[in-house]
Write a protein that binds this DNA or RNA. Structure first.
Lengths: 302, 302
DNA sequence: CATCTTGATACTTTTTTAGTATCAAGGAAT
DNA sequence: ATTCCTTGATACTAAAAAAGTATCAAGATG
């Protein structure tokens, strides 16, 4: 039995007439007669009672009509869903997230993506960068967000956007009243750095910038994450370099100030990583969203 | 798209290998390659990633695999259900019932039928014989049970079984102690007859027998149904002729006795009626049950 | 009774599907 | 590096299936 048999059967059942059904199907009457006979023969069931006025369904035929209509719609839906999946509009995307990017950027990207592709289920996994790479290779996630990643052969590393760096100061600090501060505040104040964890990380970025400017900073404290660093600034423990998205952490007693004289290459990249051989159109859809987001974001911040 | 495409697709997806799938499908490899290409082309979706080791499903392919398996089972079930319906094992049968046959015979037949064809839904409609004929013609019922029906052109009238006639006597009656009674008790006692309603009926049967025996009975009372007639016997109102299934009505004070000298053609037929042009295999199944029941029943009663 | 309509059938043509032989490309083993 | 083996893809041929044409027999209809 093929779907053709069911298509033909539905037409004959609905028209109650082989000739009219043939017209509707754009074929001639004899082949339609034969296909119906074939269907009856294969099922070994009489589906129609032939009368001089047309074709009447038997009870078995009535039942098959219902079933055939159901099959038709199931097949149609299957085709549509497959097509949408092929266009990256339907399916599931597992994403690894990590670090300070969770504060601002990633929620905004996800919001936009869910809006554009409402039928894609996005599952977030909180995991460090090494865990992300392992999960990518094991296909447990399709994409990861992180920073400061060494290049890898089998994994593409794409910059989503580059955040400017700000200095977090306690409001009691002498320069807190200024609209911007010189880089040298990092030399003259105890420095809080983060995150503790796998290298390279944001710590190395900050240290490298200081060496570029010709000094070694006084590291007062290493902390696990952005929030802890900013919290220490709030208690006047020292100063701290943060990406601009950290301004979302509006802790009382902390002000964020741009750097008057930033060193070259001063900026914190947010990267996304994915398998270089991943053909998923769903991933492609997501990357499109990410890229347009990156462009808009860069221009939107002064 | 045809079911063939889905069958082939499932095989390739499950084997992950065109060659092995072709072996499993008992075809050669090239046509299978082309059918898969055709499916991808028609859906405009890449379903497999070709590797030097075989065929890997894309996410869209994974989805279609689920859908295709579902379609396969839906189609299989549709075919099976249609076949069972064609064999009269699945469906709905509307039956009109009426009169004293409800007491014993019909429940027994239904019990047997439900046992043999558990997937057939039987709907009973209580209606008189004229209503049954009308309902048959309007296709509201498929079969009716009744007695004493005039022959009709478009409706088959089949005898289910012939019940012997008994005489119901009050236990105070002089002949109540005898194992059997002569027909003449109907002449010598007030007679209760039933049912009141459309003619011909059981009343005419009884009157005809009396005339055969050369007397006109003294009709003490006409009543609506068997139960009322027997109830009058219980209060010693008179005697009553009943079909043997009425013995199920074990009213206190009433005894049932066979007739020593029954007139020729003494017996109450239970008939079933159905459209002569009804091709329903379901009806055929039911009639088979009815016929075997009739044979067994006749031999089972002394 | 002639006529019209119905689905069925015999036969032919076209389309589709399957089969055969062969190929190019990517791993694996030497 | 090179040979060999495996993979799916392709060109061409053969077979099968579906569709088309012409015609028929059987009921309904006037």
């Amino acid at each position: 039995m093929e779907l053709r048999h069911l298509r033909y059967f539905i037409a004959v059942a609905e028209e109650g007439h082989i000739g009219r059904a043939a017209t509707r199907l754009h074929i001639s009457q004899p082949p339609l007669t034969r296909q119906i006979q074939q269907l009856e023969e294969e099922l070994d069931v009489q589906l129609f009672i032939r009368t001089p006025r047309g074709m009447d369904l038997t009870p078995a035929g009535e039942l098959l009509l219902e079933e055939a209509r159901n099959i038709r719609s199931v097949v149609e839906q299957a085709a549509e869903r497959t097509q949408r999946a092929g266009q990256g509009k339907l399916g599931r995307l597992d994403i690894g997230i990590f670090g300070s990017a969770i504060l601002d950027t990633i929620p905004a990207i996800l919001l936009k993506f869910r809006n554009d592709f409402p039928e894609v289920k996005v599952v977030l996994h909180n995991m460090g960068k090494d865990a992300q790479i392992a999960a990518l290779r094991q296909r447990r996630i399709d994409l990861g967000f992180n920073r400061f990643l060494d290049p890898l052969e089998d994994i593409v590393n794409e910059i989503v956007l580059t955040e400017k760096l700000l200095i977090a100061l306690n409001e009691q600090h002498p320069l807190a009243g200024q609209p911007a501060v010189p880089f040298s505040v990092l030399q003259e104040n105890p420095l809080i750095v983060f995150p503790v964890g796998p290298r390279p990380s944001f710590i190395d970025k900050v240290m490298h910038m200081c060496h570029q400017k010709g000094f070694a900073p006084h590291v007062a404290q290493e902390v696990g994450n952005t929030l802890t660093g900013v919290a220490l600034v709030a208690s006047n423990f020292g100063v701290c370099v943060v990406p601009e998205s950290a301004t979302k952490l509006a802790l009382p007693g902390v002000v964020y100030r741009p750097i008057i004289d930033p060193p070259a290459d001063s900026g914190a990249d947010l990267n996304c990583i994915y398998r270089s051989d991943d053909p998923s159109p769903l991933l492609e859809s997501f990357l499109t969203t990410v890229r347009t987001f990156g462009e808009q974001w860069v221009t939107s911040y002064p």
